[in-house]
Design a protein around this nucleic acid. Structure first.
Lengths: 149, 149
DNA sequence: TTATCTGCAAAGCATTTGCAGCACA
DNA sequence: TGTGCTGCAAATGCTTTGCAGATAA
């Protein structure tokens, strides 16, 4: 998986005439090996542990590159920061976020894909993507609330 | 409709011990009579046409108040600005946004409500709301693209 | 009278960009 | 050898807050 991600990334770099650098590789590897929804800043902190010399700007710009070549995609948790997750070999999925503690679960829902298609057809839009998140309170937080009473 | 919106707003103000001012009324009226998805800044510009003395901050804070009492709700178009729409007497609905020209259409989809409920139950979340948007290219922009070739 | 409101200006914050020196090809 | 890269610092753009004078109750 890591190998293939690197392949995709390096091909993309060559294709658009950009260079292959040590920093970009470190950032890609850190991103792919993390199973989470990272903000630019969170990824930056992880990258710094491996190579303290890499700056925020480089992480920020590399994340854009990863998004361009389809390795990363933005997910909106509506908490004021952009988050990214890796899209390598992953089925289309969605997130449910706990508005109390910020934890999230992923789920798959073919119905949603169907709604996108149907609505596009109905209104003559050529749809490209959609965004769907569910918000609520997770089991743990619900319990904690009850105990607090 | 305007009358009822004012009622809800004034009751809310009294309830939380806030005052009824001319500015707040102008902002409410402007907001309710506009059928659109307004950013704070857009609403501010409309309000200024009626009363040039009203400042951005007041619009911003009043929009928060309207959201608190359920008259407004935030919609995410993912373009970096917060947008609001009025919720008075409106069925739950969603948006499809053209990523080229920014225009949008509204649609209703009971399936989405069902998915929220089902997923919440499955993962033991007490769901409170969800966010769903479809993105694509509208008919006009598609045509314009074709003509451009 | 007095607590709240208003509008200005300034602060916050995440994101983006300009630039001088560095590194890959 | 030269174009692109890096990281710093500063700019940007939207959102939020502090404050002194104004206003509703």
């Amino acid at each position: 998986m890591m190998r293939e991600a690197e392949d995709v990334f390096h091909k993309h770099l060559r294709k658009v005439g950009l260079k292959h650098t040590e920093q970009r590789d470190v950032i890609l590897r850190t991103f792919v090996e993390t199973r989470d929804h990272l903000s630019t800043d969170e990824l930056f902190r992880l990258v710094k542990k491996k190579d303290a010399g890499i700056g925020f700007t480089t992480v920020y710009r590399t994340l854009k590159l990863l998004t361009e070549c389809g390795l990363a995609s933005e997910v909106a948790f509506h908490d004021g920061v952009a988050r990214y997750e890796h899209q390598f070999y992953r089925r289309s999925h969605h997130h449910m976020v706990c508005t109390n503690c910020g934890s999230s679960v992923e789920f798959f829902s073919p119905e949603i894909e169907k709604v996108e298609k149907d609505i596009g057809k109905k209104h003559h839009y050529r749809t490209t993507r959609h965004s769907f998140q569910v918000f609520g309170i997770c089991e743990n937080c619900s319990k904690a609330e009850d105990n607090g009473r």
